[in-house]
Design a protein around this nucleic acid. Structure first.
Ligand SMILES: [Mn+2]
Ligand SMILES: [Mn+2]
Ligand SMILES: [Mn+2]
Ligand SMILES: [Mn+2]
Lengths: 153, 153
DNA sequence: TGCAAAATGAAGCATAGGCTACAAATTGCG
DNA sequence: CGCAATTTGTAGCCTATGCTTCATTTTGCA
């Protein structure tokens, strides 16, 4: 059926269709647009669960951004219904925020586990996963899960 | 050795150190910052190789963005030494651009191959890889390569 | 050959997500 | 208790990356 062309060193034998390619890039742009939100809700949920509260300063320090940046992003989270907060009180997730945090954390862990299973060193896996996680679709997550199950037993 | 805590449903037993976590997020932000550049040079190289030239309009259509957006991004590529172009002529990569395109393409392919090997459907793998690729470090790439070698034989 | 269509470029606008600098509120401690 | 340190908030600035609109240049074809 597919007669493999000889491998070229510098370019694909054929490009995908324009629409197909545009769609792929569009999907990646959409995923990127939610990445920051996902990281914040996951972190806030972690902080609240382990320490009882999530202060803007702590959030900023853990993300490695200026506190003013964190505060502005938190304002967007509130605007979009993921969090609530009152002046000088910590930030808390809404039901919608907790739901997102839960999914995001599960996905993050699964990505890390797949990476380490493939032989990626723990710390590298954690670092790479911080970016990779946002682009892993449900179908890929399912495949990851099945792969780990297959391996475990 | 590592006495596993009982799995918690909603939060990690312990958070990573602040500095560690900040460093991971910072790495992801850096990778993100180069993602658009990487996609453009890979695409331009593909277009030039398969069609002899890369016109702004074609680039825009394949990326799914307005032509004005592509033109502005191309200006950045030129500013940063990855491409050259003269008015109304196609865009061409510099040596630096080709070098980047080559690395980026190899990485893209390796990511897709690993995903499909793990059981991710071809088209999903291509779509997810478009985002994932930008966050895969050299160490992870090496692990991916080793994994595929192991499997192939 | 001349003109309409297509491609290219420029300008202006918006949002996200960074930053620094400064102001105000809260906390905690001597 | 009162003041200094910390935290929080605000304002203003920047770049990247989108967009639409309009002008200009090229191209292709009748
Ligand atoms: Mn992340
Ligand atoms: Mn994460
Ligand atoms: Mn990509
Ligand atoms: Mn790619």
């Amino acid at each position: 059926m597919d007669d493999e062309d000889p491998i070229r060193l510098s370019a694909p034998a054929e490009l995908p269709g324009e629409d197909t390619q545009a769609h792929r890039f569009g999907r990646a742009r959409e995923a990127q647009a939610t990445a920051v939100t996902e990281d914040y809700v996951e972190l806030i949920d972690d902080l609240v669960t382990t320490g009882g509260e999530a202060r803007p300063t702590d959030i900023a320090r853990r993300l490695g951004v200026a506190h003013a940046t964190a505060i502005k992003t938190i304002a967007r989270l509130k605007r979009d219904g993921f969090a609530v907060s009152r002046p000088y009180r910590g930030v808390f997730l809404t039901e919608q925020g907790r739901e997102l945090a839960c999914r995001v954390r599960a996905r993050h862990r699964l990505v890390v586990e797949v990476l380490t299973t493939l032989g990626v060193p723990e710390e590298v896996a954690e670092a790479d996963a911080e970016g990779i996680e946002h682009f892993v679709s449900p179908a890929t997550l399912a495949a990851f899960s099945a792969f780990l199950d297959r391996r475990d037993r």
